[in-house]
C-alpha cells in the first residue's frame, strides 16, 4: 500500500493493521523526520512538492521490486507532502515478513530507492528566512547503486540507460557534493502546491 498525503500519519495504527493482515514473525519500520538539512543554519520547516500519479506509481514499482527480491508479506509506504515543521514525520516504510533479514533488507531497499526515484522535492525554509531547494545527495545515489539499481535519471547523457535497467550512478559528473542550491530568498511561494493523493495497491 502506498499513501501520499499532507496529513500526519499514525505509524502505530498502520503497523497494527499490517500485523492484523498477516501472521508475520517480523515487522521492520523506517521513519524519517524533518531534520536540519543545512550545515550552518537551523531548519524552520520543509515544503515537500511531488508529482501526483507518478509518485505513487514509482513507489509501488519499488515495493514490487522488493517483493520480487526478498520474502515480503506486505510493504507499506506513507509519504507526506506540503509544509512540514522541524521534527515532524516525513516518511514511513513498514515491511512484514516471516524472516527478519528479509524485512530489514526490503525496508532499507525501499527507502533507498524512494530517495532516488520517487518524484518528491524538498524546499528548506531556514529560521533566518532563507529558502533553499535541497539537492540530491550523492550518497543517496550511491546507496541505490549498491543495491544494483540505477538511480532515476542518472542515465542522462550519451552513455545513458533507462532507469529500470542496471547501471551506475557515477555517470553524471557534476552531481556530486552539491549539498544545497540557493535559489533566492523567499522565492519559493509560486511553487507551492500541496495535494493529497491516496492510492492503494
Amino acid at each position: 500500500m502506498v499513501i501520499v498525503q499532507q496529513d500526519d500519519f499514525d505509524a502505530a495504527r498502520l503497523q497494527a493493521q499490517l500485523r492484523g493482515r498477516h501472521a508475520a514473525g517480523a515487522i521492520v519500520t523506517f521513519t524519517g523526520y524533518v531534520r536540519d538539512y543545512a550545515q550552518d543554519a537551523a531548519t524552520r520547516s520543509l515544503f515537500l512538492e511531488h508529482y501526483p500519479g507518478m509518485c505513487e506509481r514509482e513507489i509501488e514499482a519499488i515495493c514490487a521490486a522488493a517483493g520480487a527480491r526478498w520474502q515480503v508479506l506486505e510493504s507499506l509506504v506513507v509519504h507526506r507532502v506540503g509544509e512540514l515543521r522541524h521534527k515532524e514525520q516525513i516518511v514511513f516504510v513498514a515491511v512484514a515478513s516471516a524472516h527478519r533479514g528479509d524485512a530489514f533488507r526490503a525496508c532499507e531497499y525501499i527507502i533507498d530507492a524512494l530517495k532516488t526515484r520517487a518524484p518528491f522535492w524538498k524546499r528548506e525554509n531556514l529560521a533566518d528566512g532563507d529558502s533553499f531547494w535541497v539537492s540530491q545527495h550523492q550518497a543517496d545515489a550511491d546507496k541505490t547503486a549498491q543495491w544494483g539499481d540505477d538511480p532515476a535519471g542518472a542515465g542522462c547523457g550519451p552513455a545513458a540507460v533507462p532507469a529500470e535497467a542496471a547501471g551506475s550512478a557515477a555517470a553524471v559528473p557534476g552531481q556530486a557534493a552539491r549539498p544545497k542550491t540557493a535559489i533566492s530568498r523567499n522565492a519559493a511561494s509560486q511553487a507551492a502546491t500541496s495535494q493529497t493523493e491516496e492510492t492503494s495497491s
Binding site: Y51, W121, A141, A163
Partner: peptide, 29 residues
Amino acid sequence: LAVNQRHVAHQASIQAGDEVAVFEPVTGG
C-alpha cells in the same frame, strides 16, 4: 525527464501526445 510518468534517459524518444515532466534530481524521503 519523465515521459508518461516514467523516468527516462536523455536519449529516449519524445512523441506528440506524451506527458513530459522536467525536474531536478528528486529529494524525497
